[in-house]
Computed example of a mutant assay.
Amino acid sequence: MKFKKLLSLSTAFLVSASILTGCGSNKGTEKNDISVGIVLGAGSINDQSFNQSTWEGLQKAKADFGIEIKYLESKQESDYIQNIETLMDEDTDLIIGVGYQLKDSIEESAKNYPEQKFAILDETYDTIQENVIPVVFKEEESAYLVGVMAAKMSKTNKVGFIGGLPAPSVVRHQYGYKYGVTNTNKDTQILEQYVNSFTDQAKGKSIAKQMQSSNADIILAAAGDSGTGAIEAAKEANKYAIGVDRDQSDLAPENVLTSAVKKLNVASYDLVKDLVEGTFKGGAEKVYGLKEGGVGIVENTKNLIPQDVMDYVNKEANKVKNGEIKIPKTEEEYNQLIK
């Protein structure tokens, strides 16, 4: 694989997967000339959550298809366009914006460079450019299931939700979770607070501790790297946390009850697969929900969940897949459903 010259950037850090140790081998797959790059919004590539899951999908694609992969971290909003243009200067075939923060920058770049292929994860547009694939997830569906589980398992009838920033995907987590709780046990109280950051582990931990001091014994944190602080608080207090985006049980095996998984790794892998196979077609959304296998929950790997609870959650999952349960995505929809 030909190494490309790295530009010197004061606000961004470019990494080519071909020079990373432990990023996977090609398993005998012939190398090809296709390159794929991702531009991150908030957080680092090793955030144990959203960004890392996306990168893991590209790592698998590198192993399976022999492509070149790379990423750029953004330190501030002004980096987004600069990072996209850096990847274009590197002749990157597909540029993926990771997170809603990249929405405007991807749209602007797609209009300016109609021959360049783009995708954006976790966002969409009213009018989709022909060279862009927006990828969206039904986070409310997996959040609903962990809300059901939290209501079933809480011993204090008090649970918590911690959000990073009120991005559409986080709001979908929030109200899907709340509906799962209230639809299962209307007497369960839900404490809610935003960190206003996806990177502040200390504040995430502090908020979780405050909720625990108010008797919340299970907390879902849809907060990126800030959520790892909430998991640390659960570990220290011997209470439960619910992971998000990827299986986060490795952070606290005895305290992460389950995770509301959003399979960004599947989405990023599928985008590359389409590119390699020549079927990449912009202009329309890709939507991943329970039915499509794009969201879900982590099974009871540590025997933390009683089997009767797991059975109940699985029945609810089937109802969601069959369209028997309508799950809110916003505060307005939630308020209408609980009247």
Rank of each mutant, 00 (worst) to 15 (best):
L40M: 14
K235Y: 04
Y113Q: 10
Q59P: 08
A233E: 09
Y71W: 13
S53A: 15
G97E: 02
G43P: 09
V146D: 09
L275Y: 00
E77G: 15
C23K: 03
I207S: 05
V15S: 09
E108Y: 08
Y179L: 00
N83Y: 02
S213A: 15
G283Y: 08
F50R: 00
T86A: 12
N255E: 12
A143I: 02
N303Y: 06
W55D: 01
I218T: 05
R172D: 05
L102F: 04
G229A: 06
I219F: 00
T11F: 10
T301D: 14
I38E: 07
I231E: 06
N32K: 09
S8W: 09
K111W: 02
I67S: 04
Q210Y: 09
Q212C: 05
K209A: 13
I218G: 02
V309M: 09
Q52I: 00
G323E: 08
G289W: 11
A222P: 00
I207W: 03
L145P: 02
E232K: 15
S249M: 07
V135S: 04
L102S: 04
F50C: 02
E139N: 13
K302Y: 10
I120H: 03
I69R: 05
V309D: 07
K111Q: 14
I305R: 02
G176N: 03
Y113G: 00
F118D: 12
A317C: 13
I133D: 06
V272E: 06
K321L: 03
M211I: 08
G243K: 04
T127P: 02
W55Y: 15
K152D: 11
T279G: 10
D274K: 12
S25P: 05
S226M: 02
K319H: 11
Q201M: 14
L275A: 04
V136L: 11
I95P: 05
Q129A: 13
A110Q: 05
K186C: 07
A167W: 11
G176L: 05
S142Q: 10
D245N: 11
V148F: 00
N318H: 12
K326T: 15
Y240S: 01
R172Q: 10
F161I: 04
Y144R: 01
G282P: 12
D64Y: 00
A17V: 05
G57N: 07
K273M: 11
I120K: 01
V244N: 07
K262Q: 09
T199F: 01
S142W: 00
N112I: 01
V309S: 06
